[in-house]
């Protein structure tokens, strides 16, 4: 296989959510002495980006996205063996995620947690109906650089404002970037409460999170 063919095969394996094919391509790349980072950045990562786009368009579904991410993780594992520094903790950044206390809607937040893992974030998913203090405790415990909160009701979105204040009062607001989302949340609301980012959907949230941590998509 030519170098280009390997990169194309890597991309196709991820899109097809085919773990066997993905690891086979990775081994082939190592055998041919290709630069592992190039295979990740120009083969597997564009494949994962395409998966994210297909999900956003409603033509690829959550279980398939997860299988695709597992295929990529397995392939990257093979490639990492050939990296000189064998960098094991390859997380883009760490995020604390949760749905605000009083709000039991967690489907969108769950999708976001999945996509963020797919894009290499370490996700601390606190679940739904999460007391504000739990966000703060998790940030302190993990040193996460991002905090994402979701609210689907006008009665719970006020918790996002309170969370901003709580992080500030605890002296950790400057150490984190905050993101807000959920059906009733808007950019206007994010600006008003001082959040660092708002996203309309999970795919956009990933893009904004990558921006916030200074990572190219």
């Amino acid at each position: 296989m030519s170098d280009l063919e390997i990169l194309e095969a890597a991309k196709a394996a991820v899109i097809a959510a085919d773990e066997d094919a993905a690891t086979k391509v990775a081994r082939q790349a190592v055998a041919q002495g290709l630069d592992a980072l190039k295979v990740i950045n120009e083969g597997f990562t564009p494949g994962m980006r395409e998966v994210g786009d297909l999900f956003e368009r409603g033509t690829m579904f959550l279980p398939e996205v997860i299988l695709a991410s597992e295929a990529m993780v397995a392939a990257v594992g093979v490639l990492e063996e050939s990296l000189p520094d064998k960098k094991k903790d390859g997380h883009v950044a760490s995020i604390v995620l949760g749905t605000i206390e009083g709000d039991v809607h967690d489907i969108g937040k769950g999708i976001l947690a999945t996509l963020m893992r797919v894009y290499g974030f370490q996700v601390h998913d606190l679940g739904r109906d999460v007391p504000l203090t739990s966000f703060l405790e998790k940030v302190k415990q993990t040193g996460a650089g991002l905090v994402g909160s979701s609210a689907l009701m006008t009665t719970t979105m006020v918790g996002q404002k309170a969370l901003e204040k709580m992080l500030k009062d605890a002296g950790v607001r400057d150490q984190v970037k905050t993101m807000v989302g959920g059906a009733v949340v808007t950019q206007y609301w994010a600006d008003r409460i001082g959040a660092d980012a708002y996203a309309e959907n999970a795919q956009e949230a990933v893009a904004k999170a990558l921006e916030l941590v200074g990572h190219d998509r």
Binding site: L62, P63, A113, R117, G127
Partner: peptide, 16 residues
Amino acid sequence: GNPSDLLPKGKIKEAL
């Protein structure tokens, strides 16, 4: 089991 919890953990069969 809650698919929103199971899927991100890769427990696809259980979520389905």
